[in-house]
């Protein structure tokens, strides 16, 4: 594997790093059929930090999995750069993930037998690629864990583990990084460290990041917030602040509550007797 990964495009470019067209994902059949995503069209801008929000079960993770090539769409198209994911088999998808995608999960991001440094370089090691030491140093200095590089994950705090995970996601210079609730398990201070790091990697290195979150203040670190509900993109917000996001969310909750009231119009007392 001698070929180099595509470098992130400069910030000025307007071509999206990834986009979906009519992306639909249906789980199960018959009675258990769930439409997790219903014809979603979304563009994820290159060099941008996009947050995806929405109530539980709205399809955020599904959207991320399908866009990242971890899962196959039922119908519709997904592009990363100009690669059509539906045309790739498992091998192709693995190669794509290896070369163009970085991941940060909510938990269990690190291989417990490897130390921090080895975890960060793992994607390159697996791909048999040389580690770009300069870039590695930059990333390590940015996460501020140079003195912890030889520690095993078990010897790191949750926040430190997540920062190592972010470093790993960035270390191979992927075209796009997906993070599913990366701060979901962290306290506010650790969250701020991790989010601050993600933000800086966008600002300073032009990294493209897509992050799923439930936390308005986490979403405030993003350039843009996309709201999902019932498998649809229902709204979006540019240059969000914690307050504006919270505002939007409140509005949705009222709407959904109203919708629920309409569909479920029987009086509560009738149910109590059942």
């Amino acid at each position: 594997m001698t070929e180099n990964p595509p470098l992130p495009e400069p910030i000025t470019t307007t071509a999206p790093a990834a986009r979906t067209h009519g992306l639909t994902k249906i789980y199960g059949e018959g009675d258990t059929r769930v439409t997790a995503l219903d014809s979603v069209d979304i563009e994820l801008g290159a060099g941008k930090f996009t947050a995806i929000m929405g109530p539980s079960g709205s399809g955020k993770s599904t959207l991320m999995h399908c866009t990242a090539g971890l899962d196959k769409a039922t119908s519709g198209e997904v592009f990363i750069g100009d690669v059509d994911l539906s045309k790739l088999n498992d091998k192709g998808l693995t190669k794509l993930r290896r070369e163009s995608v970085g991941f940060v999960f909510q938990s269990f991001n690190l291989v417990p037998t490897l130390n921090a440094r080895e975890n960060i370089t793992l994607p390159m090691d697996i791909a048999g690629r040389k580690v770009d030491t300069e870039w590695f140093d930059t990333v390590v200095d940015t996460i501020g864990l140079r003195d912890r590089l030889t520690h095993k994950p078990a010897e790191l705090s949750g926040g430190q583990q997540q920062r190592v995970a972010c470093a790993r996601a960035l270390a191979s210079r992927p075209a796009i990084v997906f993070a599913d609730e990366p701060t979901g398990n962290l306290d506010s201070r650790s969250s701020a460290e991790v989010l601050g790091f993600l933000r800086r990697s966008v600002d300073e290195f032009g990294q493209t990041i897509v992050m799923v979150t439930h936390d308005p203040s986490a979403a405030a670190y993003a350039d843009r917030v996309v709201f999902l509900a019932d498998g649809h993109v229902v709204d979006e917000l540019l240059d969000p602040t914690a307050d504006s996001v919270l505002d939007r969310m409140k509005r949705f909750e009222l709407q959904t509550a109203a919708a629920a009231q309409q569909t479920n119009s029987e009086p509560p007392s009738a149910q109590a007797g059942a």
Partner: peptide, 16 residues
């Protein structure tokens, strides 16, 4: 399971 899933997610092939 999770560890192997993680390895696969970051680009480890089945063969590896």
């Amino acid at each position: 399971t999770r560890e192997i899933g993680l390895l696969r997610a970051i680009g480890t092939t089945r063969k590896q």
